[in-house]
Simulated scan of single mutants.
Amino acid sequence: MTSHRPETLEHAPLGRDSAYPEHYDAGLLYPIPRAANRAPLGISEEALPFVGEDEWHAFELSWLNARGKPMVAVARFRLPADSPNLIESKSWKLYLNSFNQTRLESREALIATLEADLAAAAGAPVTVELFGVDDAALAPQRLPGDCLDDLDIEVNDYTPSAEHLVVGEAIVEETLHSHLLKSNCPVTGQPDWGSVLIRYRGPRLDREGLLRYLISYRQHQDFHEHCVEHIFTDLLARARPERLLVMARYVRRGGLDISPWRGTPGETPPLPLRLARQ
């Protein structure tokens, strides 16, 4: 087993051929420091402008019980936004697959192992829940608030630009969402499809401008977590709301989906919540 240490993407398993492990190996987890991507947004690790979590679901989790019988579950992980590292998704998948031929005494033993390994990689406590594959807690739901997607707008800009964000003088409290979010993996260029929810109290956001802004991520290459932080910091700077919550629900890839959220202190998202296409 290798030790956990943040490195650059140059050595990450993402975008490379990989031999899938047959036995447990915590050293497969690949941490990536958050600070490098936050610095260009003016985010200081010592004074984060938000609270939040990265919520992951794993749909390809299996292990052997003490008698060698395969067990399966869906796992939900919650990684705090103030952890020094995020965990690269392909390394996470390889790590989870390393349990496929590993015998464990109980579900509790699996949870304890997952929490310890993920916390070591992230540099902060990570919570783990296991669900049966037909558990009602995983049933799809709908995002609350008004959907922006039926607005008839012209779009010519597909790289993030806060110039699209326009606010009025009226103070409102509203929840808006869109299913048109798309960004791209910063290593492989593969598309990442998602939905985004914005809940705020402050000067009214022009809805057409907000939708153009969200669509402008369409050719942007970045991790899911950093896209959400980018949206949050742009909205905070341009609209100066009293309260703000930004939450994305990304479609799964490789058996993993991720739903990061960032909010001003005191804000909490409508969790747990999963969408039909997740």
Rank of each mutant, 00 (worst) to 15 (best):
E169W: 04
I87W: 04
V172E: 12
E46Q: 01
Q101A: 11
L9Y: 08
D234N: 13
L235Y: 00
L214I: 06
S62W: 03
V126R: 04
L275R: 12
Y200T: 00
V228K: 07
N184K: 10
M247H: 15
L96C: 06
V133F: 05
L244A: 03
N97E: 13
S89W: 03
A124M: 01
V74H: 10
T113P: 05
W261D: 05
P33I: 04
P186E: 00
E53K: 07
E267S: 14
E60A: 14
L138H: 03
K182A: 00
D157Q: 14
R201E: 05
C227G: 02
L79H: 10
A170Y: 06
E129A: 12
P186H: 07
T188R: 12
I198D: 00
P6A: 03
A35P: 08
R78E: 02
L271W: 09
E22Y: 02
L275F: 09
P272G: 01
S161G: 04
A73F: 09
G209K: 13
D117N: 10
P49V: 01
P21R: 06
A35H: 11
Y158R: 14
L148F: 04
H230Q: 14
E45K: 07
R253W: 12
L205T: 00
R142I: 11
D134L: 05
E225T: 12
G266M: 05
A26P: 15
P265K: 14
A81M: 06
D117M: 04
R212C: 11
R262I: 02
F59E: 12
N156V: 13
P125Q: 02
Q278M: 10
P260I: 01
Q221V: 06
K93R: 11
L9K: 11
N65Y: 09
H177W: 08
G15H: 05
E88C: 13
D25R: 15
G145A: 04
E115A: 11
R243E: 01
V228W: 08
R76L: 05
R78K: 09
